[in-house]
Design a protein around this nucleic acid. Structure first.
Length: 771
DNA sequence: TTAGGGTTAG
């Protein structure tokens, strides 16, 4: 009935008396079913039938008063004699329970309604589908749709819309949602604006921004109006894909179409900017929003708090909290979690403690996100005792671990060289019915890339029960107890591991090479499992695989890993493999388009990929390729570092990328010298001393650069008081650069020789290098 | 029956 037209907000058909009753029921403290019933008895003959009761049920639901709403429903359905009116009440109750997240109760009402003869309606089926859908039970929603047909009912527009919506919320893919869409059309039900909006949401959740744009165009073509939901959902799809230029274009378009951006539009855009690392733009959108007179709501405030907290701009984050509370919105668990992440990641554990106490004081209970966050930041901060306490608290709260909590634990194990425990935990979560995701796998793949076998052998002699393990170097062959998360304190391996980690805190992880075929086969096993579970890899996976290649002693082992990369993504493989084999023109064109895609990601994701790719090339002696990739990254400002005549900043670079850069930079200042110009008085190379590496103080980069400088006899020495800074006077460096042999050592040569590319092997274009 | 936020990988 509302095809192509905006759905009008239906006139509420309740009486004013119903509002009075609502207030009475709401103000009734400590109410149980009985007392709500008593209030309702008092108005039995004055309330205007089921419309009033539907109003009460919905409004009580909106205020989270689940049991009062149920009491109201029970009362109303008992006094109602007409079946269709009882049916209306049932649908309202099912829908309300669905919104409250009480699917179990919704199903109960549905079953009861059917048994008592008023529930066999399209409405109650649709309501149940929606209840399942909004709580992520997509398969149940589809089962209800099927059962509806066997009950002799014809699904209508609302039913199908609810099913498509359920597909989106339950994480179904676009094809499956399209099947429902096709079935709907085949049954003569004409899709409307909401159908399309829900399909758009499916696209948004599966990252299909181009598909979303096609649907949007299809709506125009079919003459279906596009409303604020349409635009916001499309924007969300586009933002989630990091296509921010397009997002801004769409936002302009909506104003032209007189669909005015609202608080959701702005929050979506802000989040998109923030995720793409464009924080200044995100903040200025907030200002714009305030300027055009849109007030921030709870979500918008929380988004803003999260951005400031992540940036470590705590004064501003707390300022926003204050502003929010002044607007009458109390900090909730989302706000607290955002702050906890911010302080935790920066190691400000006193503040973490203070916030935890504050939460308890104002009765905001920690949820699973709070626990995951805390365990993660404490573990990463080396505070294993505290992490263990949080784990205990989490167990005591009776919560069930989810994919993030498992992944976080898995990562802690991986970072501490206990890959065997990590893999067992992966098995355990799968058995528990919790589906690992790409992050879970990335942690473990990355750990294999670092493969700290040495550390694991030490662990075998420790308190943890590894007694059955031979001192084998194959990590996964060592057996671990059946249950790691464990049920009781006594057999809880997580607690034991935390205890052990706390006891041997100062024992940094040694990185080693991938040494044996068993380890390779273990990684392959992981990849196969990913394919089996249909877990899509992402750029982090690719970086981890490339890093693992860099840890392979033999080219043959690396080839096995690259083959896995090929199975995942032909383009990334093509570039990595092509560059490794000695680049040619085609490979470089392919590489350019890959780099264009990487550019859309935030800077740390992008730099990690460039780092991994350059390292792999450098490791296998493809130094010219490494240099080329590094230059590309530099031109695209991947590392945000300083490059000038007096200083080279190598922070955040992998050792391969950094070494390639040192060569390039020295060639660059050599061109200054050969033009007869003078170098600055002091020239320096900054490597940092490992503050930014995963293992504090590790300084792998510093060591690699030191070795490189020694190797080419560059006259730099470590700066006084700064281990991570190499300095020299401009005059000395100039003299060295003018020496006859210097140019030759600076120009990178490939270690591997590829006869097929000989004609392409020319000296680097020095003009290109003068940046 | 439809839209936005907080946790995990590099």
């Amino acid at each position: 009935m509302h095809f192509g037209r905006p759905k009008t907000v239906s006139e509420s058909r309740h009486t004013s008396l119903a509002e009075e009753v609502l207030q009475q029921v709401l103000s009734f403290q400590h109410s149980n079913g009985k007392s709500v019933e008593n209030i309702l008895w008092g108005y039995e003959f004055s309330l205007g039938g089921s419309d009033d009761y539907v109003f009460l049920i919905r409004e009580l639901g909106n205020r989270g008063e689940c049991s009062k709403a149920m009491a109201c429903f029970d009362f109303a359905v008992k006094r109602e004699r007409k079946r269709n009116e009882q049916g209306k009440l049932a649908s309202a109750m099912i829908s309300t329970l669905g919104r409250l997240g009480r699917v179990d109760l919704a199903k109960g009402v549905f079953d009861k309604a059917k048994a008592e003869g008023y529930g066999n309606t399209v409405y109650s089926f649709s309501a149940l589908i929606s209840a399942y859908g909004r709580n992520g039970y997509c398969e149940d929603a589809i089962k209800v749709l099927d059962s509806m047909k066997t009950s002799g009912l014809k699904p209508n527009l609302v039913t199908y819309n609810a099913v498509i919506d359920a597909c989106g919320k339950g994480g179904m893919n676009f094809e499956q949602a399209t099947e429902v869409f096709d079935e709907m059309v085949a049954n003569g039900v004409v899709p409307d604006r909401i159908t399309y909006n829900s399909l758009l949401a499916v696209c948004s959740r599966s990252g299909l921004w181009e598909e979303a744009r096609n649907l949007f165009t299809e709506m125009v073509y079919k003459g279906i109006d596009r409303d604020i939901f349409t635009f916001n959902t499309l924007l969300d799809a586009v933002c989630k894909a990091g296509q921010m230029e397009l997002a801004f274009e769409i936002m302009r378009e909506m104003s032209e179409k007189k669909v005015w951006p609202n608080v959701v539009t702005y929050s979506t855009m802000v989040d998109g900017c923030a995720k793409a690392g464009k924080l200044e733009e995100a903040l200025s959108l907030f200002n714009e929003m305030k300027f055009v007179g849109i007030s921030l709501d709870r979500m918008a405030y929380n988004t803003l708090v999260a951005i400031y907290a992540r940036l470590g701009r705590f004064d501003e984050a707390l300022g926003v909290c204050l502003e929010m509370e002044n607007a009458g919105i109390k900090k909730d668990s989302v706000t607290y979690n955002a702050l906890l992440v911010g302080y935790g990641k920066r190691g400000e554990f006193d503040e973490v403690q203070r916030l935890l106490e504050e939460m308890k004081l104002v009765n905001v209970s920690p949820n699973i996100l709070t626990y995951s966050t805390l365990m993660d930041v404490y573990s990463k901060g080396g505070m294993y005792k505290e992490a263990m306490e949080i784990f205990r608290e989490f167990k005591q709260a009776g919560m069930k671990a989810d994919v993030v909590l498992y992944s976080s634990l898995i990562d802690v194990f991986c970072k501490n060289g206990m890959v065997n425990f990590a893999v067992s935990l992966l098995d355990e979560m799968t058995t528990e019915g919790i589906r690992p995701n790409v992050v879970t796998y990335n942690s473990i793949i990355d750990a294999f890339g670092r493969s700290a076998t040495a550390r694991l052998e030490d662990a075998a002699t420790d308190e943890i029960d590894l007694s059955e393990s031979e001192s084998s170097t194959c990590i996964v062959l060592t057996s671990v107890p059946e249950s790691i998360i464990g049920f009781s304190e006594g057999d809880n391996q997580v607690i034991r591991i935390f205890k052990q980690l706390a006891a041997e805190k100062e024992n940094p992880l040694k990185e080693g090479n991938i040494r044996n075929s068993q380890e390779i086969s273990c990684i392959l096993g992981l990849f196969h499992k990913m394919h089996e579970l249909d877990i899509k890899p992402n750029v982090v996976t690719f970086s981890a695989i490339l890093n693992a290649c860099s840890r392979c002693d033999s080219f043959e082992d690396a080839s096995v890993l690259l083959e896995e990369l090929r199975l995942f993504d032909n383009q990334v493989y093509g570039v990595a493999h092509g560059l490794l084999m000695g680049s040619n023109k085609d490979v470089w064109i392919q590489a350019q388009s890959l780099f264009d895609e990487v550019r859309r990601m935030d800077s740390s994701t992008a730099s990690a990929f460039y780092n991994a790719l350059t390292d792999m090339l450098w490791h296998f002696g493809q130094k010219r390729g490494a240099q080329r990739v590094m230059l590309e990254g530099k031109n695209r400002q991947v590392w945000e570092n300083t490059w000038c005549d007096s200083c080279l900043d190598l922070h955040m670079m992998s050792s391969g990328a950094a070494q390639a850069m040192v060569h390039t930079w020295l060639l660059n200042i050599r061109s200054i010298v050969s033009e007869g110009r003078e170098l600055p008085k002091l020239v320096s190379i900054l490597t940092g001393w490992g503050k930014h590496s995963k293992v504090v103080g590790d300084g792998t980069l510093r060591r690699a650069v030191a070795a490189l400088l020694t190797g080419i006899s560059a006259p730099f020495h470590v700066a006084k008081g700064n281990l991570g800074r190499f300095v020299s006077s401009g005059a000395i460096v100039s003299a060295w650069l003018r020496e006859s042999g210097t140019l030759e050592v600076l120009i990178l040569q490939d270690d591997r020789i590829h006869p097929e590319n000989v004609q392409l092997d020319r000296l680097p274009n020095l003009q290109m290098l003068t940046l």
